[in-house]
């Protein structure tokens, strides 16, 4: 079987298109690269969806945590503390079993026990908490002059937030946010190892990599392939975020811009 044939059969295997049966023996390098790459579809789906949805909740959380009203501040503080203070792995397990019990009460919760929705919700809440903390830190370090200038122009409320506070917050938070995006993307590999079942063996990249490692008892081929994919996508994230960061900082002189780096010291 030629490699092109393998690609046709397995490139979309993880979303249920193509050959149903996974290869069982005589694994070729081509099969491993194709299937692990196919699993990356899930990692990208989880990463991108959680990042986009989490972004909005994170902004709300940061504003709530910085607010003077304790009825807004306390819930935001607790939310961030719970999701940042406990391991994502345990959150996945807890959420899965929670959804499982809810399913017994009401069939409405049926889709929540599937990874595509249940795990996405956990990742969304988790990344919102981490990003919320980053944004909160950025909110607090907005230069006083910026907000004073806004006041002097008679801006207040929504226009002040939209035109002054929010863009500056994003600009300051951007390097740390890039880092969060990378770690979120890495965290998506936990999904199929934490209770959420891989229905019909449609798993993510790590799921297929460990499938091959189990079958061949040779970890030296599938895991480096997986590592290659992840390093590639990490570089993609760094460059995409770099471009957005450039856009956010376009009014600044070149030497005052801070660029996100591949190996920043921050981590989640």
């Amino acid at each position: 079987m030629s490699c092109w044939q393998t690609v046709q059969d397995y490139a979309l295997r993880s979303v249920g298109i193509g050959e149903r049966l996974l290869p069982r023996d005589g694994f070729t390098l081509c099969e491993q690269i194709t299937l692990i790459g196919s699993g990356m579809i899930w990692n990208i789906y989880f990463g991108v969806m959680a990042l986009i949805t989490g972004f909005f909740l994170a902004t709300a959380l940061a504003v709530a945590k910085g607010s003077g009203n304790r009825w807004l501040r306390k819930p935001a503080e607790w939310f961030i503390f719970v999701f940042r203070g406990s391991p994502l792995f345990i959150q996945f397990f807890f959420a899965y079993f929670l959804f499982l019990s809810l399913k017994g009460v009401n069939p409405f919760f049926d889709p929540f026990t599937a990874a595509w929705l249940g795990a996405l919700i956990v990742l969304f809440l988790n990344t919102a908490a981490y990003t919320g903390e980053i944004f909160y830190g950025a909110l607090r370090s907005i230069p006083k002059g910026d907000t004073e200038a806004a006041d002097a122009y008679g801006m207040s409320g929504w226009p002040r937030f939209k035109r002054i506070v929010w863009p500056t917050m994003l600009r300051l938070a951007w390097p740390a946010y890039t880092n969060e995006a990378i770690f979120l993307f890495h965290a998506t590999t936990l999904v199929f190892f934490s209770g959420f079942p891989a229905w019909q063996q449609r798993g993510d990249a790590l799921y297929y990599a460990s499938y091959f490692a189990d079958k061949t008892f040779n970890p030296f081929v599938p895991y480096p392939i997986l590592a290659g994919y992840f390093i590639l996508f990490t570089l993609v994230i760094v460059s995409v975020f770099g471009l957005i960061g450039k856009q956010l900082n376009r009014h600044l002189p070149a030497d005052r811009r801070s660029r996100p780096r591949f190996a920043a010291t921050l981590m989640r």
Binding site: H186, F230, I231
Partner: peptide, 20 residues
């Protein structure tokens, strides 16, 4: 060493090193 371990999900390393 620094760049590779940071660029790859830690869970992949756990699964890899235990067998390796």
């Amino acid at each position: 060493y620094i760049a590779v371990v940071r660029g790859v999900p830690d869970i992949a390393f756990f699964l890899f090193f235990v067998i390796a």
